[in-house]
Design a binder for these strands. Sequence first.
DNA 1: AAGAGTTTGTGAACGCGTTAACAAAATCGA
DNA 2: TCGATTTTGTTAACGCGTTCACAAACTCTT
Lengths: 233, 233
Amino acid sequence: MTLLRSPRLDGSTSRDIPDATVARLPVYLRALNALAEQGVMSCASNELAEQAGVNPAKLRKDLSYLGSYGTRGVGYDVEYLRYQIAREMGQTQDWDVVIVGVGNLGSALSAYQGFSTRGIRVAALVDADPQRVGTVVSGITVSPLDELDEIVADRDISIGVIATPGTAAQEVAERLVAAGITSILNFAPALVQVPDGVDVRKVDLSIELQILAYHEQRKASADKTSTDKAATA
Amino acid sequence: MTLLRSPRLDGSTSRDIPDATVARLPVYLRALNALAEQGVMSCASNELAEQAGVNPAKLRKDLSYLGSYGTRGVGYDVEYLRYQIAREMGQTQDWDVVIVGVGNLGSALSAYQGFSTRGIRVAALVDADPQRVGTVVSGITVSPLDELDEIVADRDISIGVIATPGTAAQEVAERLVAAGITSILNFAPALVQVPDGVDVRKVDLSIELQILAYHEQRKASADKTSTDKAATA
DNA sequence: AAGAGTTTGTGAACGCGTTAACAAAATCGA
DNA sequence: TCGATTTTGTTAACGCGTTCACAAACTCTT
Ligand SMILES: NC(=O)c1ccc[n+]([C@@H]2O[C@H](COP(=O)([O-])OP(=O)(O)OC[C@H]3O[C@@H](n4cnc5c(N)ncnc54)[C@H](O)[C@@H]3O)[C@@H](O)[C@H]2O)c1
Ligand SMILES: NC(=O)c1ccc[n+]([C@@H]2O[C@H](COP(=O)([O-])OP(=O)(O)OC[C@H]3O[C@@H](n4cnc5c(N)ncnc54)[C@H](O)[C@@H]3O)[C@@H](O)[C@H]2O)c1
């Protein structure tokens, strides 16, 4: 018998779920939604894993951290599993997000319709530029930076997005934390330091392309090597 | 003596660099640029590691995959190391990129000035919508999907970005591959299947926020638990 | 009721990435 | 020149994540 999980009254587990698993649960959720739309009521780990693009063993191991929601010899009930993952991910409620920096990227994020089906709602937009403040972007009026504290407090927002230039990122992070934000998604190419208890995730689109460029270079030089070899042979 | 690395004429190494290391090299590059701008000529692994936000041992281990570019008792020459990493990453040349899907996100990416300093150049924009084709976005005229093949061939583009809705992602990926693209950055919330030899990286912004929401939920329930305990005590 | 077939949940092995620790190699002062 | 000091490059231990493989648990057929 394992004592790693301690069940709670609401059915959720207190045991930490590995980071790698947490990052995949939304993928499973999406796969389950796709199956549900196709009218599939039940599925085996093989099918769900294929939909999600992962190894079936990995899928089963991931799900085992949540509990035992399948039936041996049968598989998983699509709707039931979907609900269990959604609950574990906190998707039974909507999470309000404030975006700081309403430039090209901030505007694109505000306009994105796909967040709502994933339990994310862009609740407020903030910018330092007086020219932008007061303008309406995707139906939301852009607020000045000064009002960050009230916005976060009034709407009980806990997640902030930094979409300002890198030079402003640290200052914005500090203001977000001071306002009560405890989770930050940072798009600026800059390291932000935050106190313990505040989560920061960074998305660096330049690096993604640089990694691809690296692999392209390797492919190119490998081609060259084999061509050279062929020429020598 | 180690035989893991086989030096080449141009000084590059043929040995595979671990994925985790490749993903950090651009971070080191950025840190070195920052130091160079401050007029720092030389630095120890400690200082560079702090700038980059990583463990010094990790930094040294990462750099050791490239070669032995430091001096014991002294540290690293900022400019020399910067060049070595840039060369390893393929940043001695510019990499042209084609963006497919010039909507909110595609437009934001096209407008981004930060790519150029990282060796990335948005060379072409493609969209399926006749309304968008022919319009000029960030100084680039949007081309129809039909012209993808010529664009990729003429400009010798090897990297493609998918910024279309998820439903179009697989089809777009196939057209990119058919056109000769061998690296894809996919922003659509969909799995794309590609032949061997084609690299795909996926950026899923919804998932980033969902992961933060998960941790928020855990913080909230942990608070609740401790409050409960305090109340019981 | 029992046996054949199916599929989950998990123990165990493996591999990759991280980190600590230290020998090797350089500088510096006497 | 030599010993003290600094800092790299690397080895070894550790931990996390992935994957295999299989017993346990379920269904279905006879
Ligand atoms: N646009 C992209 O595709 C892209 C790609 C990669 C990285 N990024 C990064 O994302 C961030 C945003 O990029 P962008 O293209 O939207 O930039 P942008 O210049 O279009 O917008 C930045 C916005 O931030 C606001 N701002 C500046 N300082 C501020 C402060 N202290 N507080 C609040 N708001 C402030 C500006 O007024 C502006 O509206 C940048 O850090 C950029 O490096 C963007
Ligand atoms: N905007 C965001 O902040 C955001 C956030 C997360 C994820 N995404 C994802 O990024 C992708 C793009 O998002 P967006 O907000 O820019 O969408 P969008 O609707 O604004 O733009 C999509 C563009 O793709 C074009 N398109 C459609 N089918 C095409 C095809 N077959 N070939 C070429 N072009 C085609 C459309 O004409 C349109 O211009 C989507 O998959 C979305 O889910 C966007």
